[in-house]
């Protein structure tokens, strides 16, 4: 039976009079990759900083690797790797010097992996912090989080600023850590950024968890935007009747709809006509949220935090 590596119960966090977290519950199991998804300002970083004991909870409790007192357990902190959402880097020291310093804070652990990790991400260790691009800073953040092969990795938007190639490299690195037995908590704005590695995903919105779900189920629920263009105006009735197809509309020769589940029925119906063009793309998180709060799909900005 897997045990919880991160256990968050009824976490409330106030910044002055502003309530950023309104009772967050989370459990990350030993050995899983857990996605933590939410729009800007939802409270992802606040939750993560409470887990890491950088912030004191207003209410609620946090347990990490079996202890609820991270402050009193340096040996537990030694087993955690953390990538901050915004990594501070300035001054005249080089990347190599800074990484060496971060190793020193861990009694030298991780030093032997710096070269290898930097090479994987094409990170020049002799560059100075001053003038480092956002992507390069992010590489430094990734390297320092993974270098000491921690048991628990807490990564706040790890792929932000990385180009697609390096995002792939990051995913490979995360998968390796996962295979090696590590537990990962990975935050992002976008489901598609973590769905390649995450098993389960929690969705946070305006300081509260609105859903915890397997990635595959979530993806099915999110569905896809589909458009099909025919050589003649399609029949709205025929397509509306298909299973898994919602919000069907026709404009000229083009049919658009939201598809949940397998596209088989849609494709078979479409193949009875001449299709001149088609598109399908995964719906983004904001659209998913709208489903969550408006089952009829009526969009409005009113419920944004």
């Amino acid at each position: 039976m897997a045990s919880a590596v991160v256990k968050v119960r009824g976490l409330v966090k106030d910044y002055g009079r502003f309530r950023a977290l309104r009772g967050v519950d989370l459990e990350v199991q030993q050995g899983e990759v857990f996605g933590f998804i939410g729009p800007n300002g939802a409270g992802k970083s606040t939750t993560i900083r409470c887990i890491l004991d950088l912030l004191r909870p207003t209410e609620g409790s946090v347990e990490v690797l079996g202890t609820s007192d991270l402050r009193g357990h340096p040996e537990v902190r030694a087993r955690v790797g953390y990538l901050p959402g915004e990594l501070a880097m300035h001054g005249s020291s080089t990347v190599r010097e800074h990484l060496a310093y971060l190793c020193e804070l861990r009694q030298g652990r991780g030093a032997e992996r710096v070269e290898e990790l930097a090479a994987r991400f094409g990170l020049d260790l002799d560059r100075r912090f001053r003038g480092l691009s956002k992507g390069n800073k992010q590489k430094v953040g990734v390297v320092q989080a993974f270098m000491h092969t921690p048991d628990l990795l807490i990564l706040d938007e790890p792929t932000s600023g990385l180009d697609p190639l390096l995002q792939q490299e990051f995913l490979r690195l995360a998968r390796e850590a996962h295979v090696g037995g590590a537990t990962l908590l990975v935050s992002s704005h976008i489901l598609s950024e973590v769905e390649a590695i995450a098993g389960r995903v929690a969705i946070i919105r305006a300081g509260a968890i609105v859903d915890v779900e397997d990635v595959a189920k979530l993806r099915e629920r999110a569905g896809q935007h589909v458009t099909l263009t025919f050589d003649e105006p399609p029949s709205l009735e025929a397509f509306s009747a298909l299973p898994g197809l919602e919000q069907v509309s026709v404009e000229g020769h083009t049919l658009s709809a939201v598809l949940h589940g397998a596209p088989d029925a849609l494709l078979k119906e479409a193949s009875r006509h001449t299709v001149t063009r088609w598109t399908a793309h995964d719906r983004n998180l904001e659209e998913l949220f709208m489903d969550h709060y408006r089952p009829d799909g009526a969009a409005s900005d009113g419920d944004r935090a």
Binding site: R77, A78, E86, L102, L105, R106
Partner: peptide, 11 residues
């Protein structure tokens, strides 16, 4: 400047 973040999460 954010420099303490990684120091405080170290051992």
């Amino acid at each position: 400047a954010g420099d303490l973040e990684l120091e405080l999460t170290s051992p």
